[in-house]
Amino acid sequence: MQAFIFDMDGVIIDSEPIHNKVVKEVLLENNIVVDDEEFNKLIGMTSTSVFSYFIDKHHLPYTPEEMTNNHMNFFKKYIVDHNLKPIDGICPLLEQLQKANIPLAIASSSPLNVIEFVVKTFNIDKYFKFLISGEDILHSKPAPDIYLKTAKKLQVNPKDCVVLEDSKNGSIAAKDAGMYCIGFANPNSGNQDLSRADIIIKQISDINITQLP
């Protein structure tokens, strides 16, 4: 292992229930009801891609950018108002990786300003060498593009990178990039198929960095 790459939503912050709630409320205002099964298939994709999906499917009178901006403004306010903290085990893991001199990055489907907001609010920005947003990449997860770009920025061969993911789309992206993937079975991320991951954990503290390839 020469680098460790984190997804953010559902891995660093337990945000999937918040995202789901906001999107469902917006759609409900337009008389659209989405069941969890359909929504869970979209986890790991960029917000713009998710909103584009619903706009196209239901012919909504908005742009993906308008819906994404409104969504993310609510999301940042929610983090502050509810004093959210990192998922249990994340801070100790960051400390262990830093002490082992492993370069770290975030490769998230969220917009860059939201990634920056989360890591600064949680006071963990000092750990990460790069913050990469899927909004700046042509193909969203499950395409491997974001992970290949992150490896290139880190100047590390993809096969020497370890990724921590909580979604089917994210784990597919990591594996198709040629990386070792740890699947985090976060119950708040829905019933995700993590079968492509190399190992599956139920809590972050289960990660032993000395046993990673």
Results as ranks from 00 to 15, higher is better:
86 P>W: 14
13 I>R: 06
177 A>C: 02
111 P>K: 04
31 N>H: 14
148 L>C: 08
177 A>S: 01
153 K>C: 15
50 V>M: 09
63 T>V: 04
124 I>H: 13
7 D>K: 03
32 I>G: 13
13 I>N: 05
18 I>H: 13
162 V>C: 06
146 I>W: 02
119 V>Y: 15
67 M>L: 15
9 D>W: 01
75 F>E: 12
68 T>F: 07
138 L>M: 10
173 A>G: 12
6 F>R: 13
213 P>V: 01
68 T>M: 01
5 I>H: 06
42 L>R: 05
93 L>V: 11
68 T>Q: 10
96 Q>E: 06
91 C>G: 08
192 Q>S: 02
106 I>T: 06
1 M>W: 02
29 E>A: 01
126 K>E: 08
154 L>R: 07
106 I>S: 03
116 E>K: 15
154 L>H: 07
147 Y>S: 06
31 N>D: 15
71 H>N: 01
135 E>M: 10
147 Y>K: 11
7 D>H: 10
84 L>I: 14
139 H>D: 02
197 A>T: 02
152 K>I: 11
40 N>I: 12
210 T>N: 15
91 C>R: 14
156 V>I: 15
120 K>E: 15
117 F>M: 12
136 D>C: 02
102 I>H: 00
186 N>R: 11
212 L>H: 14
13 I>K: 09
152 K>W: 08
149 K>C: 01
202 K>M: 08
211 Q>D: 15
70 N>E: 04
179 M>I: 13
30 N>L: 10
123 N>L: 02
196 R>F: 04
16 E>G: 01
110 S>I: 07
189 S>V: 05
105 A>Y: 11
151 A>V: 07
65 E>V: 09
212 L>K: 12
123 N>G: 06
55 I>V: 12
190 G>L: 07
26 V>C: 05
168 K>S: 08
170 G>L: 08
92 P>I: 06
163 V>W: 09
211 Q>M: 14
8 M>A: 12
92 P>G: 04
166 D>R: 09
69 N>T: 11
115 I>F: 13
39 F>Q: 07
1 M>P: 06
142 P>Y: 04
96 Q>D: 07
213 P>Q: 11
112 L>E: 14
93 L>R: 09
143 A>G: 02
168 K>M: 07
87 I>S: 01
136 D>G: 01
197 A>G: 07
7 D>M: 06
41 K>A: 02
40 N>R: 03
12 I>G: 13
181 C>L: 02
202 K>D: 07
70 N>C: 03
117 F>G: 15
23 V>I: 11
203 Q>F: 02
199 I>R: 08
105 A>S: 09
71 H>C: 04
96 Q>N: 00
208 N>S: 09
37 E>Y: 05
208 N>M: 00
159 K>S: 07
27 L>E: 08
69 N>R: 00
187 P>G: 10
66 E>F: 06
72 M>D: 04
